[in-house]
């Protein structure tokens, strides 16, 4: 789920940081620059891990700041495709189920990747898994917002975001997410955590249920 990314940058340390040590001001500036931001094809940056190399500092004519080349490692949220994650349902819509991790919101489980058969309940604004029972009836399993959900990451998409215009001017502010994840829950074991807590399996096999009996303790 989290990885370390090695990066290289030239950091401009303005004179108001000169009272601090160089490494301290560099880490402050790196965190200010990257924390909570998506870097194209890297992922969502969380926090600085360490600085591996600090090069020489340069001063350019006409600029009182010092420019330092640094190599550093950053903690990045970048789930691997096929990874299993646990999130919370943010909302349901006709497009599918929107999932949030708390710090990352742009996760969608599209309609074709939900458990089969599922239907969208307009009244409750929630997806419902129509779980077939043995007697031919179906058991409705609602996917309400706020519930914990286990899903598999199936693909990721990065999008280059152009800078927006100055505040006030309504010049085509695009509202696309820079980094989106697509998930799926159409496998046994995936979906709301509560669906799979019961000891009996949906395959209908006669497993001995005693060894996973402890799981019901909640």
């Amino acid at each position: 789920m989290f990885v370390l990314s090695e990066m290289k940058d030239v950091i401009r340390v303005t004179p108001d940081h000169f009272h601090q040590s160089l490494s301290e001001s560099i880490s402050t500036l790196l965190n200010r620059k990257l924390a909570n931001k998506v870097v194209l094809n890297i992922g969502l940056c969380i926090a600085l891990f360490d600085i591996t190399h600090i090069g020489h500092s340069f001063i350019f004519p006409g600029d009182g700041s010092s420019h330092t080349e640094v190599k550093f490692r950053y903690i990045v949220f970048r789930p691997i495709v096929e990874e299993i994650l646990i999130g919370k349902i943010r909302s349901c819509s006709r497009d599918g189920v929107h999932v949030t991790m708390g710090f990352f919101d742009d996760i969608l489980i599209p309609v074709n990747a939900l458990q089969h058969p599922s239907r969208f309940d307009e009244a409750d604004q929630a997806w419902v898994w129509e779980y077939p029972k043995e007697d031919g009836e179906k058991h409705d399993l609602f996917m309400d917002s706020g519930e914990s959900i286990r899903f598999r990451v199936t693909s990721e998409a990065f999008e280059e975001i152009l800078p927006t215009g100055p505040p006030g001017s309504e010049c085509t502010t695009q509202n696309t997410a820079p980094y989106r994840l697509i998930g799926s829950i159409n496998e046994p074991g995936l979906g709301l955590l509560t669906w799979w807590e019961a000891p009996d399996q949906d395959e209908g096999q006669d497993d001995d249920d005693d060894d996973d009996g402890e799981e019901n303790v909640e």
Binding site: M1, F2, V3, L4, S5, E6, M7, K8, D9, V39, N41, I42, G43, K71, R73, I75, V76, R78
Partner: peptide, 14 residues
């Protein structure tokens, strides 16, 4: 800014 290695190590949640 430049990326040297986008995935130099995995980190566990812990």
């Amino acid at each position: 800014m430049e990326t040297v290695n986008p995935n130099s190590a995995f980190l566990s949640n812990f």
